[in-house]
Amino acid sequence: MEDSKAKVRRSDTPLIRIRDLVFRRGRTTILDGVSMDIPKGSIVAFMGPSGVGKTTILRLISGQLRPDEGTIEIGGKIISSMSYAELKRFRRNFGVLLQDGALFTDLTVFENIATPVREHTNLPEPLIRRLVMSKLSAVGLGGIEEKMPHELSGGMARRVAFARAVVLDPAIMLYDEPMTGLDPIAVSTVRTLMRETNDALGLTSIVVTHNVNQMRELVDYCYIIVAAKIAGEGPPEELTASTEAGVNQFMNGRVEGPIPFHYKPPGAPWGLLD
């Protein structure tokens, strides 16, 4: 455990610093006292069983939701204290790849990728065109710019969404289940793209997923979230070998363990620690 922390701290100050984050929805506490440091240049995964608020963390980081308690600091700025206008400007630093790619179905591939550019810059049309085409060929899909999203295969759509996410050269990439529903070849393609862009452009990536196997080779560091708290953290190899019951159950996919098979209604306290 000590080693892994040391590895992360290796790069000077963390880009994203989260302290004592608490988020509630109604009476349910989704996140309860979560703290983490995400260093620049790393790929970090948030893992955990379905419905534990992994996506909530992404939304908190991007400022879509505001935490009830605690702070999120990105590059020295506290997200939750930003005004709406500041936040809008700040979001240009994010590239986002959501479940299923979320391409805009009413626009062509070209327009999909051009949308963030048009929205956030005043570049002239020829420049936009060159930018979009270069990103499109970077994901290996030059020549499909006039197609509509429904004409693409799942893997192609995901790569287009990837091109759209990086078109403004963001500093931080947020992935929400980037590989769900893809065939193994497409999974590898997307994984390679994620790794290569991250390293080549010096990005910091945050991946939310419940698919342990697809992540094992990709990410530098994992946080496992169970019952609103961080149940375990560390590089994936280390977590797989972890003896901690909840982490072990999740990483190795067992039915038996502290994460219950039976649904417990909210209000009934349960978790790793009791």
Binding site: K88, R89, R91, A102, D106, T115, E119, L174
Partner: peptide
Amino acid sequence: AEIGLMKATNQIEAMELMAIDPIQR
């Protein structure tokens, strides 16, 4: 139906995350 499906396929959320106001867009 179109807007509902956009919502169901995360397109609206993607816009918010891209700092594009989906209501306006």
